[in-house]
């Protein structure tokens, strides 16, 4: 019991501590692949430190919502992080049904993020908020058709148990899991506002989704938002990596090793994807997301009928 809690706390610290590094790695890979030297890997940390010390400016028409929303964002993402398995370690929060709580607690963060954007009363933020609400709607089913479907097949309802039920012994199950992981990757790309859904480095307000929602934030508010978005990226990365643990062999060292190599490999994949794919048109994004959903459904049907 005691060791479980300790491991859970260490995993949260790992997630909170390393999430900017993950983002930095992605950016570095992307820079190298496009033939630039790029910012240092630790640049996200420097950025955060810089933003932290800036003056906080609130829009004139904003209310308590934009003051409280960054806090809610960070807290909910920390709670979500506490449900994820790092390596073979049992997460701090793990009970049957926590997959639902995981999906909905991210919904809480999104709810307040959208409200905070609309709180500014500017059309830019409104546009971002409307897009976030629309695309989130299409992203929701992907989560259920991938991780949810494994849950329904295996009968486990806790994220930790769901991932533990994965055993790549059977070929059809193996294919099923791999295609699920592709769907989850597409989900991660959209939820964490990466290309081709959103460009984190864009400079035009009209084309942004996530960035435009926090356009009018600065200082500690921006720090919290930025840090939360790093955590969110890492959370989805862990959802992706966790597919590939050989859960039948319980060795902590192996778990950590796979965690590290998996993260590194994922940064590479993200870097490659962002280099070779350009940002798609706004009106094509629902199609992109529905494509991921369709893969999920087809995959599930094929698995069920070949079982």
């Amino acid at each position: 019991m005691g060791i479980d809690i300790l491991q859970g706390i260490i995993s949260i610290i790992i997630i909170l501590g390393l999430s900017p590094l993950f983002a930095g790695l992605v950016n570095k890979q992307k820079a190298i692949l496009t033939g630039r030297i790029g910012a240092p890997i630790l640049q996200p940390y420097y950025d955060l430190q810089k933003i932290f010390k800036k003056e906080t400016i609130n829009a004139t028409s904003s209310s308590f919502i934009s003051r409280i929303s960054p806090l809610i964002n960070l807290v909910t993402l920390v709670i979500a992080a506490a449900m994820l398995p790092v390596g073979f370690w049992k997460p701090l929060i793990s009970f049957s049904g926590d997959i639902i709580l995981f999906a909905y607690i991210l919904g809480l963060a999104r709810f307040f993020q959208i409200l905070a954007a609309m709180d500014i009363g500017s059309s830019f933020e409104g546009m971002g908020a409307a897009r976030e609400a629309t695309f989130a709607l299409f992203a929701e089913p992907i989560f259920f058709f991938t991780i949810g479907s494994i849950s329904f097949i295996s009968g486990f309802t806790s994220l930790f148990d769901i991932y533990h039920s994965i055993e790549l012994t059977n070929i059809s199950y193996g294919v099923f899991i791999i295609i699920c992981s592709i769907s989850v990757f597409m989900l991660a790309v959209s939820e964490c506002s990466r290309m081709p859904v959103d460009d984190p480095n864009t400079h035009l307000e009209l084309t942004m989704i996530h960035e435009v929602m926090i356009l009018d934030n600065s200082g500690i508010d921006l720090f919290l938002y930025q840090y939360s978005s790093y955590i969110k990226l890492f959370i989805y990365a862990i959802l992706e990596i966790s597919f590939f643990y050989p859960f039948s062999q319980q060795s902590y060292l192996l778990g950590i090793l796979i965690f590290i190599t998996g993260s590194a490999a994922l940064t590479f994949v993200l870097g490659v994807v962002e280099t070779i794919i350009s940002r798609s048109k706004m009106k094509n994004i629902p199609q992109y997301l529905l494509f991921a959903t369709a893969i999920g459904i087809l995959n599930l049907l094929i698995y069920t009928f070949t079982k």
Binding site: F52, T56, A59, T60, L71, I79, I120, G219, I220
Partner: peptide, 24 residues
């Protein structure tokens, strides 16, 4: 957590300043 963070946030805002301005 929100409560504690809010207290911290208020302190930080005191240190580095906070003002209101028109939206971008």
């Amino acid at each position: 957590g929100i409560f504690i963070l809010a207290l911290i946030k208020i302190r930080i805002e005191k240190k580095y300043g906070r003002r209101t301005s028109d939206a971008w």
